[in-house]
Design a protein around this nucleic acid. Structure first.
Length: 281
DNA sequence: TCCTTATGTACAA
DNA sequence: TGTACCTAAGGAC
């Protein structure tokens, strides 16, 4: 279930559960991360950080350093890809299944990582290189939305594809791109260079608010108060995604606002969803 | 039990 | 543009 909000929430949850200074037990029941897990075993989790859909767990102690200097931190770089999941809860940990790539345990908590596309031990230099190839993240205080607009405003590519490009904006995925374009009435096929500064400002500000709420609730909800199931007297959404949305995975269903049939089409190997009547700008 | 699908990305051609 | 990779849930049988 990973867009940027999931990863930022995981950073908070890992740090909250494990960064109290107690050494951790680190293992890889699946075996694919065993060598690194052995190096990290009985070291201390110092920090957890997210940039877009990338998660970084900072460990101290495997090289003998005890000070929280980034240069002396060993980072575990995690990317969940499409399928990755983390199960995090109070100790005792359940018996591990053979799909657990990385298990952290502690006197009070456990966290099991399954199905990531990336789980690797990296240096601080390698970590900086990852930050350098990612665009501004609406969930990070250091984000510069103007940097994203400079590139969007020069591009002939559709705004729907640009919003998914992590070099331009880090953390937006298929749900947030569909929903934020709907909320601003923007046709997903418009070229980036036709997006005005005012439109970009509104899109960015909205993403910041939506994604912060996503971190808080650990799910994506994008409908305004007047369009909730309660407000409109319609049945709540029931599927594995969970949150209330306008268009995502609602192909061929009526638009909550105008009743028009929601459309879907493939765009950059993903399914795009939009309302042709509401998104005309 | 099999098939499809999924909130992602990298690389080959 | 297509394909490979990682896992689990839901629906059709």
């Amino acid at each position: 279930m990973p867009e940027g909000h999931t990863i930022h929430r995981l950073a908070e949850d890992y740090a909250g559960a494990f960064s109290d200074g107690t050494p951790l037990r680190v293992s890889s029941p699946q075996g694919k991360f065993s060598d690194a897990a052995a190096l990290l075993d009985r070291t201390v989790l110092h920090t957890a950080e997210a940039h877009g859909k990338h998660l970084f767990l900072g460990f101290l102690g495997f090289l003998g350093f005890r000070d929280p200097d980034p240069e002396h931190t060993d980072w575990v770089h995690i990317h969940l890809g499409l399928f990755g999941k983390v199960a995090l809860g109070p100790a005792p940990a359940p018996p591990p299944t053979d799909t657990v790539r990385l298990r952290l345990t502690h006197h009070a908590s456990y966290a099991d990582l399954r199905g990531p596309t990336t789980c690797a031990l990296i240096t601080d230099t390698e970590k900086r290189a990852i930050h350098d190839r990612l665009g501004p993240d609406p969930l990070r205080p250091d984000a510069d939305p103007d940097a994203a607009y400079r590139r969007i405003s020069r591009s002939r590519t559709t705004i729907a594809a640009l919003l998914m490009d992590q070099k331009l904006i880090a953390g937006v995925g298929n749900v947030y791109r569909a929903e934020v374009l709907f909320r601003h009435g923007i046709d997903p096929y418009r070229a980036g260079r036709d997006i005005t500064p005012a439109e970009w400002d509104a899109l960015w500000t909205d993403l910041v608010g939506l994604m912060r709420e996503g971190v808080r609730n650990n799910r994506i909800d994008t409908v305004r108060p007047e369009h909730t199931p309660e407000a409109m007297g319609r049945p709540p959404r029931v599927d594995d995604h969970g949150g209330e949305v306008y268009v995502y995975r609602r192909a061929h269903q009526p638009c909550h606002i105008c009743g028009e049939e929601i459309r879907t089409a493939g765009l950059a190997a993903r399914n795009l969803f939009w309302c042709p009547a509401c998104q005309h700008r």
